[in-house]
Design a protein around this nucleic acid. Structure first.
Lengths: 218, 218
DNA sequence: TCGTCGTCGATTGTCAACAATCTAGCCATG
DNA sequence: CATGGCTAGATTGTTGACAATCGACGACGA
């Protein structure tokens, strides 16, 4: 039922990665229950390391544990994504500013590659790959900012965003527009124009979210 | 060696709170090792829930676990505090803006109380209480912002800041100045002047950090 | 027929023992 | 005397079994 067939993880926190991958791949649907005994048996390990991995995932916000009820994969709401976007609008331009030197210099090829990947995957309508490329693009600024807290911040958001995007493809109505957005973002980032970066980012969120939430169901 | 004598926590995540309190109280110095068997015996519980609590604390950044070596309480560096400050400078004014309505309205008394607490505790040179009041003051903006992600952000920072402040009192050379800073902060927050808030906050960090790091030891 | 209560099965939380690993001290050796 | 390997103790990681709790099914009574 899971897909660790290749890596055959031993026990430490590789379990964590396996579960995370399974959740993000959609092998376990949001709201679905994660039964410890079953998973532990499948992975050929005991429940202790599994519980540890579940605790990790709970802190990351990917699963919700209810006492004596079990662990369920979280459902990321459009509201939460919007909240994350509102904070990203504040910090991501700063990350871009800090990363500007690296982007213009030795690491420029990574930005170019990320942009090209996003363009190619959207052209091919390869949604999963485009999500990867999309997240990789934004991650770049945090990675190259040389700012540990910023990097940590993005790490906490990326999984949630990936889960949301994997489930909810509505925001991907117009893939080409997304590629356009990011080419403009890359351009202003290279220029080092923080304010323009913020504007482009806001526009990007606008187009993504406007396509987005249909109507509240909860 | 620990101080759960009052609450007599059973087992769930109360262990987590006990350990956290012990670390923040300085009962276990930064860098000190947390031996599972010993702690479990002291608390009268097994190692399983204890390990879970340690995992929680590791994610929170309060302890660092090295495989087969043990768990050690983290040492928060001045650099990390500075990084947190640089991000707070971006998001805290936003939190204040979102909280402005509540602060001017029904929840105004909480801001007044926090400001008074900070003034009183600094006047009395009660350092631990002033740290509480100080953190409580800033937390207020995040709490009242009605923004889940912002609140979560602050929650992740507060423990680290508290640990840093508990150990490193250098930034508390001039307690009165800190009280002054926050009275100005409260004033501009009530006015709803975001840019002024940002300036006051920057000045606050400036005065705190300039007093701060003596010289690198790591 | 509907509501309530008790029991059963399933699942999570906890415990104590076993295996794997690391550090410290000692002894032999160059 | 310094250095290398080795053994012993301590500590963490893992396992399987036991206890506590919850939800659901079914019987009973109004």
């Amino acid at each position: 039922m899971f897909e660790w067939h290749e890596k055959r993880t031993t026990t430490p926190d590789g379990v964590y990665r396996v579960l995370r991958a399974a959740i993000l791949d959609g092998s376990v649907p949001p709201g679905g229950q994660l039964r410890e005994a079953h998973i532990a048996a499948d992975l050929g390990i005991s429940r202790s390391p599994l519980r540890e991995a579940l605790t990790l995932l709970e802190n990351e916000g990917l699963v919700v544990k209810v006492p004596f009820r079990g662990a369920f994969v979280a459902e990321v709401s459009a509201e939460e994504v919007a909240e994350i976007a509102s904070v990203r609008l504040l910090v991501e331009p700063y990350a871009g500013e800090l990363a500007a030197d690296a982007l213009r210099g030795a690491e420029r090829h990574r930005l170019v590659k990320a942009t090209e990947d996003l363009r190619r995957t959207t052209d091919e309508d390869d949604i999963p790959a485009s999500i990867d490329a999309h997240l990789q693009f934004h991650r770049l600024f945090y990675d190259l900012s040389g700012h540990g807290v910023l990097r940590e911040l993005w790490g906490g958001w990326e999984t949630k965003l990936r889960l949301y995007l994997s489930v909810d493809h509505r925001s991907y109505d117009d893939l080409h527009e997304i590629a356009d957005d990011h080419e403009r973002l890359a351009a202003v980032a290279l220029e080092g124009d923080v304010e323009a970066f913020r504007r482009e980012l806001a526009a990007h969120f606008q187009s993504a979210l406007s396509a987005g939430p249909p109507d509240k169901e909860t």
